[in-house]
Simulated assay, not measured.
Amino acid sequence: MKDTVSVMIPCFNHGHFLAETIESVLAQTKAVDEIIVIDDGSTDRTSQVASSYLDAIQYVYKANGGVSTALNAGIRRATGDWVCWLSADDLFMPNKIERQLEYVRVHPNVGLVYTDFYIVGEDANEIISRARSSTFSDRKTWEEQLLKTGCLFNGSTTMIRRTLFYKVGLFHPELLHSQDYNMWIRLAGACDFGFVPEPLVKYRWHKGNEEHREKPNEYRERARQLR
């Protein structure tokens, strides 16, 4: 049975990174079934960059509402069995989709599978470090550790069974930060998590993504409250 994959790329004023991000999906060793770019009211060149890929992507423009609303727009449009989230400034390694599909076919009980990742500079060829994600053996431990600590893995590394979003609900629109953390807490109670211990994403560290780290404890606590 063929597993279909949708990749959603929420983008707000990251037009200067967007082409490289889209290209990283197009370069997959296992082609995805659809790429959905959600422009969250960008005022830069995002629409122009996206327009040059209209033969390969679906482009959705919406008024600015934050990452959660952009992700929800992508989920509602997606048709794949599995949904991947790729931030518009991050990159997939070429075998990311292939390795995750191999994993879920061997572990059919898993509803979410994530990976390690590289932290890179503004130039994605500059690898700063390899980030190793946490892993636990059962849902109860996952829920306990998530509530005790924090996010534990990067959203751009995830592949999630699409139907689960309609079981636990979509991303909370009121969460402008830590919306991924809130989602992982809810999903931990609904499905098993799987882990591929390979760095299959490049997470780009640059000045534009530092703002949301100003009050991490406050953001995490709000995410816990809304579960």
Rank of each mutant, 00 (worst) to 15 (best):
R222L: 12
V196G: 01
I36E: 04
S129V: 12
G189N: 12
K207N: 02
L187E: 02
D33E: 07
E211A: 05
A73P: 03
E210M: 06
I75Y: 02
Q179T: 08
L18Y: 06
A19S: 12
K96F: 13
D116A: 15
S6H: 09
S156G: 09
Y166H: 13
V113C: 11
A188D: 08
E218I: 14
D3A: 15
E210A: 11
W142L: 14
V106Y: 10
E198P: 01
E122W: 06
L112N: 12
D138S: 14
M1G: 06
E198N: 03
D138C: 07
S68K: 02
E34S: 02
K140T: 13
V49H: 00
S134P: 02
V196T: 01
I128C: 07
H172G: 13
S42N: 02
Q225F: 09
V60M: 10
I57T: 07
G66R: 00
Q100S: 08
Y114T: 01
E174Y: 09
L147M: 08
K202W: 11
A73R: 09
E98Q: 12
L86H: 04
R204A: 07
M93N: 09
K2A: 14
L170V: 11
V196S: 02
N125K: 14
G80C: 13
S52Q: 05
H16I: 13
K207L: 11
R130Y: 14
L26T: 07
R220I: 12
S133R: 07
N154H: 05
A223C: 07
W184S: 03
V37K: 06
A223T: 01
E211D: 10
L26S: 09
N125V: 10
W142C: 11
R132C: 14
H177K: 03
T158Y: 02
D192E: 15
